[in-house]
Write a protein that binds this DNA or RNA. Structure first.
Lengths: 339, 339
DNA sequence: GCTTATTCTGGGAGCGTTCCCAGACTCTCG
DNA sequence: CGAGAGTCTGGGAACGCTCCCAGAATAAGC
């Protein structure tokens, strides 16, 4: 079949001609301004329908200096992007708020460094009026570029090395502390952790909270670091942990997927939860309800995270000042059967 | 903190002034044209760095009539969007191809009808040069709007009611037939199906393939329709199926998530796979390797689906004609332990 | 009826680019 | 040395829209 080509589009002048009015009047009708006679309005509306007019976004953006779009940057390696249980909900939360305010969300997935360059110029080139950035690691060039650009922005999560951009996150440290304490309170004596994502604040804070809770009883040999927040990492991590100490009776995993992997690794060697080892996850993702036994875990308000971030951007767009640099949303512990 | 405001941006005229050349020369350098002296080129590059110039996208789009961006429309109810195991891979496949060709992918998630209107005008307003649409249902207004717009486009999946737009999909019917036949070949006598998504071609075709394979032995009472491609639907579907006939010994599920739910429902009533009932899923998603036992399923080349769709759009953008209206990619059956 | 508001309209200017034409300057070659 | 080709540059015009000013038409007030 022949290539599809956009048809020659009608301009505001065509509409004006057909409607028998001037360019200015058409523009006024299009933008819903007052001071337009009913006769003119109906004529323009009919003409718009007749010629199939759609406003040229580029021309409009050029003069108004805004695009009506907000960017969402998801900067994750592919594997993480596919695994992350929160991104979907965050995205939907953002979309809900922006949709309400009549902004269009455009998501940019950044993979390679090459993408990074293109995305940075996309953002600063005026395609978007603001931006939400998920999961900025340390030294994230895009985060830095956005911070420098002055573009209204908000982070989901708290980048450690960027200032002046508001953020909304959860208090990973407190949540990890609370859940670890609860594990201790159920009588667990030798509690280990399978930690992931130590290159970002969330990962580090979860580890810190775990350490906080254990205090003197903290034993570094019981912390295993794994590369991904993934099921496979959970399996590997649990196996390694058991070689370090086969009397482990509690495990805090950095994510539900890791916890699920840990449960599977345990099953392979004849151990079960919560009997032999109490296992706790993080995220309260779809995983948590589907493992055997269902996971005790920390519930993350992902949807709300997205909504808040979007609101932060909108506030700036409207010229309102943002009260605090950052805020943390409440997490709740969901105690199921795995611990 | 005060609202962030984009700083006043430098224009090409500022660059020209600083570099001591004309607007035209700056433009030539920016666009990598020949016929620019080395002296001018270096002067311009230095000036660009000095004033922090970034090209204004709107102005450029206005005159070139292109945006350098391709839209991806994901038109799914929220629940599906979060569950769908393929969307992520498709997106990454598209992104890989477009990134190579230096196009920026912008993803638009459509939820409400209100979003639909905004998205349609976004697409036809010149923000994107082309578009990939995932999962168009019947009477999808956005699919229709795109088809009518003449915008270079491609569907992932085969919309039943839209013509003239190329698509790439998988042969759901053959795949379903093949997998059902294999289930029969292993000696299953009473094979049921838990079917989802009958409002779209993929769902209908899977059911049709299932019916094809069974031929005379098809028993409509053994087909249970569920609303979502989800775990919870699998649980409900399996329970319902067992009330219809408690001697079922084989089940084909429309997705891995459904199959996983079916396995859980079976476990609850003391049945197991493959001993009591052989269970087969669809997608070969992350689920498949994590159920107990691991699922036999149909592997969907999601990444490739995305790549092909992106290539179809690029071909049109380059004015090449597209050989066939649609194509179907090969699926493979992955036989694990659940059947 | 005349003045002053109020409502409505047309069209010039300008947004920041690219495109393209005309002219200047530099080679090359007979 | 002069003609022609090749290289390089400046700047006018246009892209399609919004903004805004000035003026026309209508309504309101005395």
């Amino acid at each position: 079949m022949p290539p599809r080509r956009p048809v020659q589009r009608a301009t505001i002048n065509d509409v004006a001609r057909v409607a028998g009015v001037s360019r200015g009047t058409v523009s006024r009708v299009l933008n819903g301004e007052t001071y337009v006679s009913d006769a003119a309005r109906t004529a323009v509306e009919a003409a718009v329908a007749e010629v199939g007019y759609v406003r040229n976004a580029a021309a409009r953006n050029l003069v108004t200096r805004q695009s009506g779009a907000i960017g969402l940057i998801v900067h994750e390696p592919h594997s993480l992007f596919l695994e992350d249980p929160n991104i979907g909900s965050i995205l939907l939360g953002i979309n809900a708020v922006l949709s309400e305010a009549d902004y269009q969300l455009v998501s940019l997935v950044v993979d390679s460094d090459r993408d990074g360059v293109r995305v940075a110029s996309y953002l600063t080139g005026g395609y978007v009026d603001g931006v939400v950035i998920i999961s900025a690691r340390e030294n994230d060039p895009i985060g830095l570029a956005v911070a420098r650009s002055g573009l209204p922005a908000a982070f989901v999560g708290h980048p450690m090395d960027i200032e002046g951009v508001p953020y909304v996150g959860i208090d990973n440290r407190s949540a990890a502390r609370a859940v670890t304490e609860r594990l201790m309170a159920t009588g667990r004596q030798r509690i280990g952790m399978i930690a992931a994502g130590l290159d970002r604040d969330s990962g580090q804070d979860r580890l810190a909270g775990f350490t906080d809770a254990l205090g003197d009883r903290f034993d570094p040999r019981l912390v295993v670091e794994v590369p991904l927040f993934a099921h496979s990492s959970g399996i590997a991590g649990m196996r390694e942990l058991l070689t370090h100490d086969d009397r482990v009776d509690g495990v805090f995993a950095s994510s539900d997927a890791i916890a699920a992997g840990a449960l599977d690794a345990m099953r392979d060697v004849g151990l079960s939860a919560p009997g032999d080892i109490g296992v706790v996850g993080f995220d309260d993702s779809a995983w948590a309800r589907r493992t055997q036994p269902p996971l005790s875990t920390v519930h993350q308000p992902a949807d709300l995270l997205g909504r808040r971030a979007a609101e932060l951007v909108l506030a700036q767009l409207e010229g309102r000042s943002v009260e605090a640099e950052g805020s943390f949303l409440e997490t709740t512990i969901v105690w199921r059967d795995s611990a």
